[in-house]
Simulated scan of single mutants.
Amino acid sequence: MTIKPNTVVALTYVLHTTGNEGNSVDAGNKVFVEEAKEDNPLVFLYGVGMMLPKFEEYLSGLKVGDEYGFELSAADGYGEKDPGARADLSVEMFKEGGLPQIGDKLPLQDDTGNRFQAVVTGISDAAVSVDLNHPMAGQSLHFTGKIIAVREATQDELNHGHAHGIDGHAGH
């Protein structure tokens, strides 16, 4: 079976990034981000918008055992860095848990309920300054991996809009 809309895909991957500040794409400039191995693969419902669109486009038509490798530009990944995507949060917000450190990632939620992470860039007596860009904004994403399993999604998975595990029976 090949990867197409409404299939559940299980795959391994290794993700490296490179910045777009003129870095070449050779291995010396790649930074390891994360990986999913065969004993704990990435499992997702293909074609419902869970993954980056270009990521899915590169996987279309692959089947079990196929290996892949591709690069997504920053624009096709998490976007270019927006220098205006910054905010100052009142230090009052941190009274209970204490002030974060520069470089810490803070879990935030916007007024419509979307969750995201902000990175602390500065701390003053009045405010904690954060960068609201996705941590991988402005970077090219380099994926390599192997397709482990492809199956038709169950009606339950299609109704819920997500995969229920590699075999379709995992908990929600």
Rank of each mutant, 00 (worst) to 15 (best):
Gly61Met: 07
Gly61Trp: 13
Lys63Gln: 14
Val64Tyr: 09
Glu67Ala: 11
Tyr68Arg: 03
Tyr68His: 07
Tyr68Ser: 02
Phe70Gly: 07
Phe70Ser: 05
Glu71Ser: 11
Leu72Trp: 05
Leu72Glu: 00
Leu72Gly: 04
Ala74Gly: 04
Ala74Met: 02
Tyr78Thr: 00
Gly79Gln: 08
Gly84Gln: 14
Gly84Ala: 12
Gly84Phe: 10
Ala85Tyr: 12
Ala85Met: 14
Ala85Arg: 06
Arg86Ser: 11
Ser90Ala: 14
Glu92Asn: 13
Glu92Leu: 15
Leu99Tyr: 10
Gly103Glu: 09
Gly103Ile: 05
Asp104Pro: 01
Lys105Met: 13
Pro107Ala: 08
Leu108Glu: 05
Thr112Tyr: 09
Gly113Tyr: 05
Asn114Gly: 03
Phe116Thr: 09
Gln117Cys: 07
Gln117Tyr: 09
Gln117Arg: 08
Ala118Trp: 01
Ala118Asp: 04
Val119Ala: 11
Val120Thr: 03
Thr121Ile: 14
Gly122Thr: 04
Gly122Trp: 01
Ala126Ser: 12
Ala127Cys: 08
Val130Glu: 02
Leu132His: 04
Asn133Met: 06
Pro135Ala: 05
Met136Gly: 01
Ala137Ile: 04
Ala137Cys: 08
Gly138His: 06
Gln139Leu: 03
Ser140Phe: 09
Leu141Lys: 06
Phe143Asp: 07
Thr144Val: 11
Thr144Trp: 03
Gly145His: 09
Lys146Arg: 15
Ile148Asn: 07
Ala149Glu: 13
Ala149Arg: 14
Ala149Asn: 14
Val150Met: 07
Val150Lys: 02
Ala153Arg: 01
Ala153Ile: 06
Thr154Met: 10
Gln155Cys: 00
Leu158Phe: 04
Leu158Met: 15
His160Pro: 00
His162Met: 12
Ala163Asn: 09
